[in-house]
Design a protein around this nucleic acid. Structure first.
Lengths: 111, 111
DNA sequence: ATTCTTTATCGTATTTTTGCGATAGAGAAG
DNA sequence: CTTCTCTATCGCAAAAATACGATAAAGAAT
């Protein structure tokens, strides 16, 4: 078997998990950093910075885009990606909310 | 092919990615919530709450423990798990740091 | 119009994750 | 000491993630 049972959980839990999964790879964190640095948000330079093949970087970009963490528009030879601050803020809030929820329920560790 | 190249990235990036991966599954988020609710931090009830087999829950607990997000001690028939607030705080700080880094570099989206 | 440059997608291989049933192991209860 | 209960681990299968090379596609440059 091994059918992923993600659909059996809360929408909130799934959303947060998806966000987390998007940044659950050092390459994608590195990509986010590069995107934030370049104000003109033209990439392709990302491939040069990362120790990965072009196709792999493109794949990671796609996943970040699917997760909603970045926006992107392709115009032939050059593409333009940049961080979707709104979604990122939402993620930050969702995680903060979880953290807060956990903490208010039980502040001290018992083992 | 397909050798994970995670070691090619910063330690910080790897750490944050590992933390993120730990919560990158709704089941593990749900487990954290249950652990926070029960003050006595006795589990096994987790299995009843979650729509997963006992062995699967045990596996998720193991991963959370490996990631350092929870502490656990097994004493024969009953085990005791609870949230490692210190590590969780560290994760929260690391993520907040990334978020801040990104934001100070580039505040506005361009696409 | 043809070539060049850049990026996305396809196909494929390998590794990792997810999940379950079955079994083992470790105290508690009798 | 034997049984009972709870948890961990093993073995396995299916799915997803990771990575790359090769190819396609879409403008730019000539």
């Amino acid at each position: 078997m091994a059918v992923h049972k993600k659909e059996a959980f809360t929408q909130k839990e799934q959303d947060l998990a998806n966000f987390a999964k998007a940044i659950a790879h050092p390459a994608r964190i590195a990509i986010l950093k590069v995107l934030a640095q370049r104000n003109e948000c033209i990439c392709g330079e990302i491939v040069e910075v990362l120790p990965l093949a072009q196709s792999t970087v493109s794949q990671h970009l796609k996943e970040l885009k699917n997760a909603g963490l970045i926006n992107g528009s392709v115009e032939g030879p050059k593409s333009c990606y940049c961080i979707n601050w709104k979604a990122f803020e939402k993620f930050n809030a969702a995680f903060g909310s979880l953290f807060k929820t956990l903490k208010t329920n039980n502040e001290k560790a018992c083992c």
